[in-house]
Structure formats: structure tokens, C-alpha cells
Design a protein around this nucleic acid. Structure first.
Lengths: 158, 158
DNA sequence: CCATATTGGTAAGCTACACTGACCATTATA
DNA sequence: TATAATGGTCAGTGTAGCTTACCAATATGG
């Protein structure tokens, strides 16, 4: 059983779960995007990862990407447009549907995606060193479990 | 030892630690602020918590609050100003320093703070039910440990 | 004790990232 | 085949931050 009074103290001291999650997220994010800028991708910001995270070699439609990233298609459209301007993506009409367009990575975009994955992994490694491999593994497992359960709940409640 | 290949798969699938942290943060945040609006505080948004989280009965200066929330004093100043307009805070000259002002909670602000703490605690309870008390306790402990260590690192590296 | 540096705070303007509402063209369906 | 649903765009809005520049009051070192 978790020590409820201790949690309460923490809440009083402003250490909500949310604030800590947010802070850890920011730490990772700043690490990754700071280094990304130093690695030849100075025009890429966190928002761009919502595309890069999900885009596979097959390409995808803006609508699909938007759904995966849980943002509106207008927002996703703007992000994609920006990445096209910078040469990371290209988009061509989808042969199987006259309304749709297929978004794919250019070689430059593939390099970016690879670098982003690498830097994310390195950032996690730093965190693992700070709290210990064991606890890092625990944290990751916990989050993955929750995320997957959350996906279930959404599919169900929809 | 954490299963590195599994982590790598997850990274490929876009499940970075960061994206999961962010998502859980959003879930909590939407829960709390959605309900807060239904509880008679429709004008309070997540940003406001950066003040409310740290402000004690003694009051505090904008500069102090800004440092605690890790935002600029201009940003904090705007947030405080907004909360004053809505009757949650008041600010008076600090008798001990002619430059400074002391920000304190009005009774209305105290009610808000209490409600916010309650809702945060309830939101965490929901999460605890979803992943299990044990794992919730683990997650919280992990995050608190990292947060405190991070505080250390900052104090040291500064 | 006074010149200079530091500190608390404000003002103005900008950027990043997301949203809503309205709309068009194409495809699916009753 | 008329209507609904889907993929996408355009224009406008809002939120939460930031930077640069500045003022007034306090601290500090010679």
C-alpha cells in the first residue's frame, strides 16, 4: 500500500505527478532537440517529432498522421508543409484515392529520423545512468503499460 | 539489465520515454482542469498552477515564484496579474524591500488552491486504479527520486 | 560615502504550437 | 443518384511562453 500521507505531503509541496512528468519530459526534450540542432538539424523542433515518430517507409496520409499524433489535421498539415519546405518530406497524390496525398520521407528526412531515434535513445541512456538501469527499466515498463492500456480504453470508449 | 532490443523496438514504434511522459501528463492535466472548470473555477488553466503550486500562506515575490516554476519573471508576472484580476491573489508592497511586492492568496485563492490539490489527488487516484496501487506507488517514487536528484544536479551545476 | 553592480519588476513585441469554423473536391452509401 | 462521409485546405484565434530593453531600489567595494 502506498503511503498516502506521504503523497499528501508531496502534493502540498507542489510535487504532483503531473508536474514531475512534465519536468522530466522537458529535460528529455531539451536534451534531444538541443543536440539535434548541433548535429545539422537546427530547423527541427519538438512539434516536428509528431510526424517523424510515426511516419514509416510506406508513407502516410495527413489525416492518419494527425490521428496518431492526436492533433487536428490542420495542425498536422502545417507541420508536414513545413517539413516539405525544408526538404525532409515530400507528398504526392495517393493513386488509390483522388482526395488524398501520400507523405513520404526524402533521404534527408530518413537521415533526420535516424538521428532523432539515436538522440532519443542517448537521452534515455543518460537518464538511465542518473537513476540506475533497474529503475529506468521499471519506469519505462510502467509507462508502456499505462500507454497501452490507455490505447485500449480509447478504442473501447469510442 | 533492461532489454535493450525491446527498448529499441519501442523507439522505432515511436514510443519514446518523452512521448509517453507527455501523454500521461496531458491525461492528468485534462482530467484536473476539466473538472476544475465544473467546480466553479472555469477561468483557471494549467499555466496558473505554476503559481498555485508553490505559493504558501506567507506570500512570495514574483521573482521567487518564477524561479520555482522555472519560467521567466515576465511570464510569471503576467500569470500573477491574471490571477489578481480574477480575485485569486493580491499583491502589496514588500515592507522589507522597496522594489519588491508580496503576492498572497485571497480567501477565494485559498479555496482554489485547496480544490486544485484535491482534484490532483483524485486524478492520481484514478491513475492508480488503472495501473494498480503498487505500480502507481512505484511510478511516483521513481519520479520523486529523479526530481530531487535533478534539483541537486541543478544546484551543483550552477 | 558614493559609484557601480545587482536585484525586483515592468513594457513591448515576438515565436511556437495548437485550436475552431468554414469550405472544397472526391468517394462511399442508402 | 442524392446525400453523407472523408481527405484536405484556408483564414483566423488563443495560449503559453520567450527576448530585449528599461526603471527604480538596494547592496557592495574602494
Amino acid at each position: 500500500m502506498p503511503d498516502a500521507s506521504k503523497v499528501n505531503d508531496a502534493l502540498q509541496a507542489g510535487m504532483t505527478l503531473g508536474s514531475m512528468l512534465r519536468r522530466m519530459y522537458r529535460a528529455l526534450s531539451e536534451n534531444v532537440y538541443g543536440r539535434l540542432a548541433d548535429t545539422g538539424f537546427p530547423d527541427i523542433r519538438p512539434m516536428h517529432s509528431s510526424v517523424l515518430r510515426h511516419l514509416t517507409a510506406d508513407g502516410a496520409r495527413v489525416t492518419t498522421l494527425a490521428a496518431q499524433a492526436e492533433i487536428t489535421k490542420q495542425s498536422m498539415s502545417a507541420i508536414v508543409e513545413d517539413l516539405i519546405q525544408h526538404g525532409y518530406l515530400e507528398s504526392r497524390p495517393d493513386p488509390s484515392d483522388g482526395r488524398a496525398r501520400l507523405v513520404t520521407l526524402t533521404p534527408h528526412g530518413q537521415a533526420l529520423q535516424a538521428t532523432l531515434t539515436r538522440l532519443s535513445s542517448e537521452a534515455e541512456k543518460v537518464l538511465a545512468e542518473n537513476i540506475g538501469e533497474q529503475k529506468y527499466a521499471q519506469l519505462r515498463a510502467l509507462l508502456m503499460e499505462w500507454t497501452q492500456a490507455e490505447n485500449e480504453r480509447e478504442r473501447a470508449g469510442k
